[in-house]
Structure formats: C-alpha cells, structure tokens
Amino acid sequence: MDILREFLQESGFDAGEQSSIIGQFHRRELSKGNLFAQAGRVCDQLAFVEKGLFQFFADRDGDEITTYTAGTADFVVSLGSFLKQQPSRESIRALTDSVLWSISRQSFNQLRQTIPSFELFYMGLLEDQINCIEESRYNLLTLSAEERYQKLMTDEPHLLQEVPLQYLASILGVTPRHLSRIRGQIR
C-alpha cells in the first residue's frame, strides 16, 4: 500500500484525501497466469499494480495478440469495458505473481463525485491513456519494426528484461523469429 500512497502523494492529494481514496481500494493477489480481466466479460475493477507484470491481449483466430503490458506503479483495467460497462474485447493476465490494489467501478465513481481533486486526477489519467494509445497507433503505422524496437530500447528498456520475447514480438507487430533477427542486427 505504501507505493499507492506514494503515488497519490506525488499526484497532489493531501493526507486526508489519500486516506479516503486508499480506503476504497482492496488488496488483491494474483498468481502467475491468472486473469485480472477476461474478454467477453464486463471489467468492473480498476487496479494499481504494487508488484507484478501484466499482459493485455486479444484472441485473433486462435492466436494471442499482445496489445500492451503494465507493471509496478501502473494501472490495469480494460478501459472501454470499465467505462461503458460492455464486455471487454481483451483479457489481462498476470505474467508474474502479483499484488494489486483494486477498486470497483462504483467506488471509483463515488470518489469522483465526493473528492473534486479526484475528478481532475481521473481526467489526467484519461488524457495520459489517450496519448499513449495515439502514440502506439502512430508508431505502429509509421515506423518500421526495427525503428519500433529501437524506440522500445530507448523509452522502456526494462521491458526487454521483463517481458517474454513472444509478447514483445506481438506488441511490435512482428513474429518472434523476426524479432530475434532484429535483435541480432541491432546488437
């Protein structure tokens, strides 16, 4: 919980607001391989990752397509499902044994209504997600696989150590074999 409190403090919440917010979160442990969210079901929880690594993925003709990864001090949620209360198009799986701080949609919305600074915080989170999605889409459409890998090396080098090769390949839009060739050329 200390990492969540620290995150909230860095986000500008005072001690009273931090306590009110943290009081709505519940500790949850997920073992490696367990799902936080499942495609086809409504995601009614948002969680802050205290420890662990998560894979966001979709099924396409029996193949898993990794769309995103999240780790310590990130949030995990199937955002469209959480916001619209529609079945999720993706699943979210723990790649490691993990500890989360989870909040229900109902409690989340209650915080938005009762703590004005939480609504501003929420808007900031949404803006960050929109920018992340836009950059990811832009990179996938305009950069070569080699350029996307180099950008990953520069922007998020920890992922190269933490995320299995097949998931990195999927995120970059290449096969694991192609990614191995790219890595060999760049070293």
Rank of each mutant, 00 (worst) to 15 (best):
E6R: 08
T175I: 07
G71A: 08
K51T: 09
Q38A: 13
D44H: 05
V163E: 11
I103D: 02
T114A: 04
A15R: 08
V77C: 14
L172T: 01
A94W: 12
S88V: 03
L4W: 04
T114V: 03
S88P: 01
E64K: 14
F36Y: 10
R183V: 15
R5P: 02
N139P: 08
G80W: 02
I186D: 07
E50N: 10
L141V: 04
L30P: 02
Q9W: 02
M1D: 11
P176E: 03
P157S: 15
T69F: 14
Q113F: 11
G52D: 04
I22W: 01
N109K: 02
S31E: 05
S11Q: 12
D128R: 00
T175S: 11
I186F: 10
D63L: 13
Y167L: 02
F75G: 04
A58V: 15
I115L: 07
C43Y: 03
D63Q: 14
T67K: 10
L168N: 01
V49Q: 09
Y138D: 13
D14F: 08
Q24M: 08
F108V: 11
P87Y: 08
Q166F: 04
L120K: 03
Q86Y: 08
Q161L: 09
F121P: 00
V163P: 01
W101P: 04
I103W: 02
E10L: 15
E64Y: 07
R148L: 09
